[in-house]
Computed example of a mutant assay.
Amino acid sequence: MLQAVKGQFALTMTLLATALWYCRQLYTYIAHLLKWWSRYLQRKFTNNQGVSAEADLLGYCAKEWKEETEQAKHMRKAYEELFWRHHVKYVRQVRGDNYCVLRAVLFQIFSQGIPLPSWTKTTDVLKLPEKLLYSQGCNWIQQYSFGSEQYTGSNTLGKLRRCIETLRSQWMEVSSIKDPYERGNLCNALFADESMEHKLYEAIKFIMLYQVIEVYECLNNKQECIPSFFNQLFVRDTSLDPLSYMMNHLNAIGERRGLDQVELFLLGYSLEVKITVYRLCKFNSAVSQESYTDVYQRDWPEVFLLTEDDRHYHIPIIRM
């Protein structure tokens, strides 16, 4: 009897040890799988991030411009000037596509919790496409291009409405968050979703077009109180009126080109922010720092851009 009990006990201990071994192996496998999945998601999130985390400005410069060419020396001096004179201590890298200016400006608007432009309080932005098409006779807006989508025909109004609704709802949600940390987390999530991003940028492009149409009508009605940069926009052969501006300039933004200098004025005017650009390629010249706003708009919130070549823009972070 005792021998049988001992045998049963030994068998039980063997089975228990075997079960523990399998549990340990399963735990190790699951831990390895979770670690691999975590790294995969981290890489995927990082690769998709439209705006990177803050990086030390001089460290970024040393990494990007470590050669001994004249251009590299010029850039190192420009970055040092930016660091010591303008108190730019950090930089956020922005994904380098043709939406980069819109991305850099909108990210700052969202992360700072800047409210919607004041003109949206008296204008139903969701009805702007229909207003322009039916009330103002701009049937040509159906030729609007959504980045790589060159022509959408009868679907244009619906797509525009969805883009504007996305921009409005996301802007209202972000600006209502008082905690900067929570607001920053939401911004990071928004600017890691490329499909969402493109809707936001196409809505901003359309708002820019709306402002061009409004000011053009004011000019035709001999109204004088308009921002001076519109004269520069309408004097070009390629943008004599809103239609030519859309066809020759706006439709290409995001697909074949970014924004030019006069469009930085238009962007700031449309979103009611001052845009200040540090142009490192123009270091030690009169245009190394430019503000794209009219004098009477000084009370608007300010956002900053940094560019090395007037094509690709990053976000400079100022710390006193």
Rank of each mutant, 00 (worst) to 15 (best):
R95N: 15
R95E: 15
R95W: 13
N98I: 04
Y99P: 04
L102T: 02
A104C: 13
V105W: 15
L106Y: 15
F107C: 14
F107D: 08
I109S: 08
I109V: 13
F110N: 09
F110W: 12
S111T: 06
S111A: 11
G113W: 14
W119C: 09
T120K: 12
K121R: 11
K127V: 11
L128W: 06
L128N: 11
L133E: 14
Y134R: 08
Y134V: 12
Q136C: 07
Q142C: 10
Q142A: 03
Y144K: 07
Y144H: 09
S145A: 15
S145G: 14
G147R: 13
G147L: 15
S148W: 08
S148F: 09
Y151S: 07
Y151Q: 06
T156K: 02
L157H: 07
L157A: 06
L157V: 11
K159R: 12
R161T: 15
R162K: 10
R162C: 09
I164Q: 00
R168N: 05
R168E: 04
S169D: 15
Q170E: 09
Q170W: 08
M172V: 06
E173S: 04
V174G: 04
S176A: 15
I177S: 05
I177Y: 04
K178N: 04
K178I: 10
P180N: 00
Y181Q: 13
R183F: 02
G184S: 05
L186D: 02
C187W: 05
C187L: 04
N188D: 14
A189S: 15
F191C: 01
F191P: 03
A192I: 05
A192P: 01
E194V: 10
E194P: 06
E194S: 13
S195C: 14
M196W: 11
M196Q: 14
E197P: 02
E197V: 03
K199Y: 09
A203G: 09
I204A: 02
K205Q: 12
K205H: 10
K205D: 14
F206V: 00
I207P: 04
I207T: 08
I207M: 13
L209R: 02
L209S: 02
Y210D: 04
Q211E: 05
Q211G: 07
V212N: 01
E214W: 05
V215F: 08
Y216P: 05
Y216F: 13
Y216I: 07
Y216T: 11
E217A: 07
E217L: 06
C218V: 00
C218W: 11
N220V: 05
K222C: 07
K222L: 06
K222N: 06
Q223G: 00
E224L: 10
E224V: 01
C225L: 06
C225Y: 02
P227N: 00
S228A: 12
F229M: 05
F230H: 00
